[in-house]
Design a binder for these strands. Structure first.
Length: 517
RNA sequence: GGCCCCGUCGUCCAGCGGUCAGGACACAGCCCUUUCAAGGCUGAGACCGGAGUUCGAUUCUCCGCGGGGCUACCA
């Protein structure tokens, strides 16, 4: 109680110094597909502003286009947000004071608003058919004219509309847009943006299926839900004048507009399916940590103002501000994300890393997990012992499998040509392995320090460089030419299995000598 | 085509009239080292072009050029 109070005081103080009052922002995806990283960054920016100002973050489904509706995407939207820890205060699943948060369930509100606009003379019914619209555009294109609706519906009488309605023609409602003048607004990241009204035609606000267009619907909802800031991607700039016009016609104040730049793909085109992983969920499945992705995409189009890059969620929330959002597009650089993921992995506690790694390792072999012959569940204590050996070597969680598989496998089958170290022939390699095997049988205790001391002495005794002796042993025991530190590895694998693997390697080497020569 | 947005190393970001133009990823070299990493040091690498404004432009203005977005009864 006492603590909570002082926290609140601190928050208020911060708000004062930051001169920002609580905002209400929303993430309003349309359930037409899996949210990609750009969508998610928009959600993140909204969430960050809400948390920074102690405001509310709302999720709302914009499903007014029922032809493109995709049921699975609703689940994916929630999952993406949950994975990144962008919890919402109000939304389709949890309700809230302005429920419902699904546009298709608010249909009547939009019809009312549109009809109000007709009655106030700001909008009108239009019975132009899609075919007529198409013909109009064709004509305009042929004449090299801009392709715009010509406002013919403005002149239709109520009787004519009624007739068309009875005849079953599709009726829409269009906004009456003045044919001259300018609209402008103050974008929070770009400053003043202006448009000529003559460039804008009378656009549809209510479709013939009685569903609103995005333009009408989001404005009605944002107003009803008390949204203060609209943070969205740059692609919306050109329709913002339409939104301003609707606000004006409705007699309401527009929100503060914040247009963040697009995230581009490696080839400078819009992020899309063919550019590898693009959905947040795919990053999760590819072994990226939510914290790392969170940190990384926050930095795509925003920066704290200095050179700080690796930041905790709290720090990002604390330092976030709209005026540090970038106005130029960013290219998504996977290499840097990978690096950052590695940083996060290295900074994790062993237990946390074990928890993250387990699901990846326990997946079926066919899906990238350990060999199916390794029994599940995986021995958590054993894995915990191994983590310190590989933690600083991992960049992705998925790499845990290939990095640790030989610890779990019954045996290992290196290729004969991989066994010799640098400047070693088969004979020398076999000599090294024989000596190694003999020593392996007697070392006690089978601990890293002891092993290292004994094997270094052995190298000297058989007149090889330590690296020359160690290389074949490493390959014999791990099946790979690069692996965690050898003696820690041997100790973890255990004396018996080490003996088996070295014996096996010697056999492999001999049989290769026979068949090879 | 029209309208709008954007333009600093390959990439992300800092710079907000005077800086040896800074940091990070990636890259190269060296050090460390039993391999691979991690870490340390060093290096290479950018203000799209042209006019203005100014004592002085990466920074302000304009014009080009380049990139992107929009141009639906999709969002």
């Amino acid at each position: 109680m006492h603590l909570a109070h002082s926290e609140r005081v601190a928050a208020n103080l911060f708000r004062m110094t930051n001169s920002t009052s609580p905002v209400r922002v929303r993430y309003a995806p349309s359930p037409t597909g899996i949210p990609h990283i750009g969508n998610i960054r928009t959600a993140l920016f909204n969430w960050l502003l809400a948390r920074n100002t102690d405001g509310q973050f709302i999720v709302r489904f914009e499903d007014t286009d029922r032809t493109r509706y995709d049921e699975r995407s609703e689940r994916a939207i929630f999952e993406s947000l949950e994975w990144l820890g962008l919890e919402w205060d109000e939304g389709p699943d949890k309700g809230g004071p302005y429920a419902p948060y699904i546009q298709s369930e608010r249909k009547q509100t939009y019809i009312d608003a549109a009809e109000r606009l007709v009655n106030s003379g700001h909008a009108y019914y239009d019975d132009t058919t899609p075919e007529q619209l198409h013909a109009l555009r064709e004509r305009q294109r042929a004449a090299k004219q801009p392709q715009r609706y010509d406002g013919r519906g403005r002149h239709r009488s109520p009787e004519e509309i009624e007739e068309s309605r009875k005849a079953g023609l599709p009726i829409t409602i269009r906004l009456k847009v003045p044919d001259h003048g300018t609209v402008s607004f103050e974008d929070a990241v770009r400053g003043k943006v202006s448009f000529e009204l003559k460039e804008i035609d009378d656009f549809v606000i209510l479709k013939s299926d009685q569903m609103p267009t995005y333009h009408l619907a989001h404005i009605v909802d944002d107003k009803a839900m008390g949204i203060t800031h609209v943070i969205r991607a740059e692609e919306w700039i050109s329709s913002t004048p339409r939104h301003l016009l609707i606000h004006e016609a409705l007699g309401i104040e527009p929100p503060i507009y914040v247009h963040a730049s697009l995230i581009l793909s490696k080839d400078r085109s819009k992020l899309g399916k063919r550019h590898g992983a693009t959905s947040a969920l795919e990053y999760r499945d590819r072994g990226y940590l939510a914290d790392a992705v969170f940190n990384f995409i926050a930095l795509l189009g925003w920066s704290p103002g200095d050179d700080t890059e690796v930041m905790s969620r709290d720090e990002i929330v604390r330092r976030f501000s709209i005026d540090r959002i970038n106005d130029s597009p960013a290219i998504f650089d996977n290499e840097k994300l990978e690096w950052m993921n590695g940083v996060y992995i290295r900074n994790m506690s062993v237990d946390a890393l074990v928890a993250e790694l387990l699901p990846f390792m326990e997946r079926p072999e066919a899906e990238g997990g350990l060999l199916d012959t390794v029994s599940r569940p995986i021995d958590r204590h054993y894995l915990t012992r191994l983590i310190p050996l590989v933690q600083e070597r991992l960049k992705l969680l998925t790499e845990g499998v290939e990095t640790l598989d030989f610890f779990f496998a019954d045996n290992v089958n290196p290729a004969a040509e991989d066994l010799p170290g640098r400047k070693m022939d088969a004979e020398m390699t076999e000599r090294a392995l024989n000596a190694a095997l003999e020593l392996c049988r007697t070392v006690a205790p089978f601990e890293p320090e002891r092993l290292e001391a004994e094997y270094r002495a052995l190298a000297e005794k058989i007149e090889m460089k330590p690296g020359q002796l160690f290389s074949p042993i490493r390959v014999a025991i791990t099946g790979k030419s690069f692996a965690p530190p050898l003696f820690d590895t041997m100790s973890a694998i255990g004396q018996d299995r080490c003996i088996d693997r070295i014996e096996n390697a010697i056999l492999i080497l001999r049989s290769a000598a026979v068949t090879g020569a």
